[in-house]
Structures are given as C-alpha cells and as structure tokens.
Design a protein around this nucleic acid. Structure first.
Lengths: 250, 250
DNA sequence: GTAGACTGACCGACGGTCGGTCGGTGGGTT
DNA sequence: AACCCACCGACCGACCGTCGGTCAGTCTAC
C-alpha cells in the first residue's frame, strides 16, 4: 500500500473520527481493528502505533466526546456573567442545569442525536465509560453548589457529599432508565414524548425533594421548545430499527 | 476421554456451578468456554448442547443467581403474616425493605459476600445484566405499594410510575455508586464502613423525601448488626481491589 | 433400535506483535 | 547554495495465539 505520512495529531484524529463513525454505525465491539485501519487507509500496525489497545481507543473516544460538554460548562462557571459565588445556591444550580440543557440543544446533531445507538447492548462498555467520565466531571461542578446551599440553609441537606452522589445518580442513571423505557415504547411517538417528559419532571421533582427545596424550584417550563426537542429526539431514535447492513467485503 | 452421561438437569447445573465459580474467580469474560468445559470434564460441544452461546450462559447465570432473592420476596408478599393490602403503604414498604435486608444477611456467604468481584471492569456486562434482572423483578413488587400510598395520601407522589422508577434507581444505581466509592477508599477499613453507612443513610433519606414522608420514616437503626454486616462486607471485598498492606495509610 | 447426550478436531475472526521499510529532516561537507 | 546522508519515527503487513462457535459422528441408556 502507498505509504502516506501525516502529522501524528492529524493521523490520530483520523483514527478517532473513523472509529467514532464506525462505533455509531456497527457498534464499538463489532468494529474490528482491521476494519478501522482499512477504512482509514493505514496498516494495522499504525493503529497500535497510536493506541496501546482497542480499549485505549475507547477511552480516547470517550474523552474527546465527553469533554466537549464539560469544557463548556467549566468555562462558563468561571465567566463573570454567570452566577458566581455570591449568587444563591438555587440560582447557581438553575444556571448549571440551564447551561447544560442549552449545550445539548445546541450540539444536538453531532452529539445528543446519536445517543440512542449507545443503548444497544453492543455498546454497553462504551456507554458506561462515557457516563463514568461525565459523572467524574460533573461532580466537582455540583458539589460546591450543594455545599453552599447546605451551609447557607438554601438547601435542607445533611450530607452534601452523599447528596451530590444522589443528584448525579438521578441525572445520569434515572435519566438513563427513563430513556430506555421511552425507547421501549418507541412504536408510539406520542407515548414516547409523553413518557420522556414525565420522566424529566419526575427526576426534577425528586431533585427538588432531595435538596429540600419547594416543588417547582427547578421544574422546567414545558414549553414548545422542550416538546420539539423531545420530538426531534424521537425522530433520531426510530432508524435504530433499521435492518443491519453489516456484511461487507472481507 | 471417558464418556459419562448424566441427567440433563444435573449436567446443566454442573456447568452453571462451575461457570459461577470461574466467573467470580477470573471474571466472566476471561473465562473461556474451553476452560469451563475442561473443569467440568466435558467436551466443548457439550457446552453448546446446553447453551446456545456464551451470553446465553450469562443470562442463565443471572436468572439462577438473581431469582433466589425474588422468589423469596414475592412469596413473602403473599404470606398471611406479612403486611397485606390492608396495611399502610409505609408499613408495606418497610416490610419489603426489611425482608430484602434479612435475605441478604441470611445468604451473605453464597451471594452478597461475593458481590465485590462483580465490580471489576471485567464483569461489567454480567453486573449490568444481573441488575437489570433484579430491577425488572423489583418493579412489580414496589409499584403497587407506591400506587397505594399515592391514592390514600400516605405518600405525596404525583406520578407513581415515574416515582417508582426513581426509587429503583436510588436503590440500585445510587447504591451501586456508593459502593464503588466505598471500595475506592477500601485502604482504610474504618472509612469504608463510615462511607458505606453514610451512603445507606443518604439513599434512605432521599427515598423518604421523594415519597414525601417525614425524615426517618424508613431510616434503619444504625445498630451493631448493621455495622457488623458492613464490616463483614469489607472483609469480603475482593483482595484484588484491596491495596497491599505496604501501601496502607501511614 | 433409536433418541439424544456427548465428543473433539476444526474453523474463521479477532486483538495484538514485531522485524523491517521508507519518507522527511537537519547538520555537515563541498 | 547545493548536495549528501545519517537518523528518527511514522508506517507496514505477515504472523501469532486464543477465542467463540460448528458439526459429523460416536456412544449409551432405555
């Protein structure tokens, strides 16, 4: 094969780009290193020149994919126009949630929209790794807010560390579960939207209760934007049922 | 090799027994079908005579392991001496939690004690499968209680289905997370016990808040039994996860 | 006799390895 | 300035051991 030399960073990104595409297409486990290098147009050895193993590739993938959201959130937490240390814990938490939601809407196509494939059994390890990464990055942003709220009495919380853990679990795990249930009934679009919104409300309500704030403190307005977003999410979900076209040249 | 014919059920159980032992020892993924059949003393083909694939073995393993708890709980829910339909939702839920805890203490050695190995990355799929199975079996036992509590006003719950989902997530996922954090600091036994108990309290508190019952409604007494149980749990923590004695805190 | 429990050599695909190749680059020589 | 060439490391791809899975056939209890 014709030898083409490129900047290491460029080549590495190429590998990651194609790996991401293939992972979302056939799944991470099913994607063989042979297939990956074939599509990139390099030899197998080149892959192992850049990544020590296939699972190292997974972590790199998760890092790159998962960091984009948090670099945004962490940067925003420092910005002067965002509620700072002087703001109430409620305001800060509201802002955090809003910033997170805004990012998700903004990057829908290149991130959130392709979420549903992560839920195929195939991608369990990838999903778990991604969520773990997100969790580790979320914790240090949320814990200070809960601590502040506990100290100034805004929140009724006895154990800020443990409560933060509960919040993280609500957002990621319960959200996860709500999502899976919604997908399970994806035959009916209207039921999908209704169930997803009900899940969001339940998680929010649980968060309010756990923090000891009045019901409604963090409840989002169920406006058309949110409805439309969930609707779009649904439309990104259906093609999951498509027949697989995996068999390709050997 | 000498051919030995046995009752299909016996042979199948042999395969499951050895598979469980090997899974807890070297991990499910690392356990090859060759190794399994070698240890059982049968040919590889025999394995595929009983299980259609290795992942079918996993599901069978999960079923057998996961059902023992729920056959107990479901049976108890029917028994006359347990709080029945006439009891308050609080009593019924308390009884459910107590029965579950009792079973775990009772079957510590052959079930809960070997839990920690499930948390090695190796066994991610096995763990996920087991928890999913437990979740599916827990839901129908808990949902009626939440519905009853919502109807008679014992619980302050707007959406029983979604709230049940939150409860399940609290028990399994948050418990999961608390456990992992405790394991992470397992260098220090005292810290391990403290953190685990704090996690249990936080989850319980969260449950009370989510259901809208007074703090303390479901809080277990932090008596010596519980402390001892957690202590024993610590001692069962996989040696692989525990640091060597050298790097103990100075 | 025969149903079905059991056998084990065999298969293709996989992740990973490794000795070797070759394009680009920079310092020394002319 | 033009040339050379030693060296670095990106790149190659045949090869390896192991894995999950198959199957044509054998043995045995009834």
């Amino acid at each position: 094969m014709a030898r083409v030399t490129k900047e290491p960073d460029v080549r590495r990104d190429e590998l990651l780009d194609v790996a991401l595409r293939l992972s979302l297409d056939v799944g991470f486990e099913s994607m063989s290193v042979d297939q990956l290098t074939r599509e990139v147009g390099v030899a197998k050895g080149t892959f192992y020149h850049y990544f020590s193993s296939k699972s190292a590739l997974m972590f790199a993938l998760v890092r790159r994919f998962g960091d984009s959201l948090f670099n945004h959130l962490a940067a925003r937490a420092q910005q002067p126009d965002s509620p700072g240390e002087h703001a109430s814990a409620t305001e800060r938490l509201r802002d955090f949630i809003a910033a997170s939601s805004a990012w998700k809407l903004e990057h829908f196509d290149d991130a959130v929209g392709s979420m549903s494939v992560l839920y195929e059994p195939e991608n369990l390890a990838l999903r778990h790794s991604l969520f773990s990464h997100w969790l580790e990055r979320t914790r240090p942003l949320v814990l200070p807010i809960v601590v502040q709220g506990a100290q100034d009495g805004t929140f009724d919380v006895a154990d800020p560390e443990a409560t933060t853990e509960v919040l993280l679990s609500l957002w990621y795990d319960t959200g996860d579960r709500v999502w899976q249930r919604a997908v399970a009934i994806s035959a009916d679009p209207e039921a999908f939207v209704r169930q997803t919104l009900a899940g969001v409300l339940a998680v929010t309500r649980a968060m309010e209760r756990v923090l000891g704030t009045p019901d409604g403190t963090f409840t989002p307005s169920l406006d058309d934007d949110l409805q439309a977003a969930v609707q779009t999410l649904y439309e990104h979900t259906s093609p999951k049922l498509k027949p697989s076209q995996k068999e390709r040249r050997a």
